[in-house]
């Protein structure tokens, strides 16, 4: 069953064609990795699929429904959430509150029930706390729940952002370099966490540079280079693909 289908997606910024005619799909219960050298257009693809920026052209469908006319704030309600390459956390809130914001799309107390602390709103608030706490436990930082987010380390913030994206129980989670800046143990832990997400029935689109994580986790890999898709296949196939090797080697030459 196709969960997400992307067709002929393109995006340019002024003169830069960041993404050119990229098509792919994600099946239900699948982990798909999106890799490519720096500037390949991975984040741009993610931003378009998660509704942060509109495509210049192309189609994105989720569960068979076109997302063209869907406003950015309705994605979470549909079951599409994400994390960010540059952390977008609310550092003046506690860790728990950060995760509770992730439940916004599945709660509904209004201004008056909140302002007047009506029983309904209070119950919902308690419920949110409980649920957020569970997700913090799942990603392994529940002991930090009551601290201000600004006191957390980079890796802990990444986990918190993941819990925030997951707590609404999305069908499709997009992750932009979740392991960037983490050490080996942390990356291994995170890999396990993602496996759990998959078992729970959430499909993942994962942008990552850490090849260990990708090879361990991904069911399928899509490779982008200079905005275009140059390969797609199982981890095994990708490792042996000549074009992929060339793209990565070429990049190493550039940066050397």
């Amino acid at each position: 069953m196709k969960l997400v289908e992307v067709q002929e997606l393109s995006r340019s910024f002024g003169g830069v064609q960041a993404v050119k005619n990229v098509s792919f799909h994600v099946n239900e219960g699948e982990i798909v990795a999106l890799i490519g050298p720096n500037g390949a257009g991975k984040s741009t693809v993610l931003n378009m699929v998660s509704g942060v920026i509109p495509p210049s052209s192309g189609e994105i469908a989720y569960r068979g429904q076109s997302l063209k006319k869907v406003a950015g704030d309705r994605y979470a309600g549909l079951g599409i959430t994400r994390t960010f390459q540059n952390l977008q956390t609310f550092d003046d809130m506690t860790v728990l509150e950060n995760v509770m914001t992730g439940l916004h799309s599945c709660t509904k107390s209004g201004v008056f029930s909140c302002g007047l602390k009506l029983p309904f709103a209070r119950k919902e608030e308690e419920e949110m706390k409980k649920q957020a706490m569970q997700w913090l436990k799942l990603v392994g930082i529940s002991h930090l729940a009551l601290l201000k987010a600004e006191r957390l380390s980079y890796g802990q913030l990444r986990l918190m952002e993941i819990a925030r994206a997951m707590c609404s129980g999305p069908g499709f989670l997009l992750l932009d370099e979740p392991a960037a800046g983490l050490n080996h143990t942390e990356t291994a832990q995170m890999t396990n966490t993602f496996r759990k997400f998959k078992e729970m029935g959430t499909s993942l689109l994962l942008v990552e540079h850490d090849m260990d994580m990708i090879m361990n986790l991904a069911d399928r890999i899509i490779v982008l280079d200079q905005g275009a898709k140059i390969a797609e296949g199982t981890p095994q196939e990708i490792q042996e693909d000549a074009r992929v090797i060339a793209a990565y080697l070429g990049q190493e030459e550039d940066s050397a």
Binding site: D73, Y75, A76, R82, F84, Q88, F90, H104
Partner: peptide, 18 residues
């Protein structure tokens, strides 16, 4: 929390359905 979220990052706020 939605108020404070849009204060810090409108993009993140939108992504969680605000």
């Amino acid at each position: 929390r939605a108020f404070r979220a849009i204060h810090k990052s409108e993009i993140a706020a939108t992504s969680i359905g605000i």
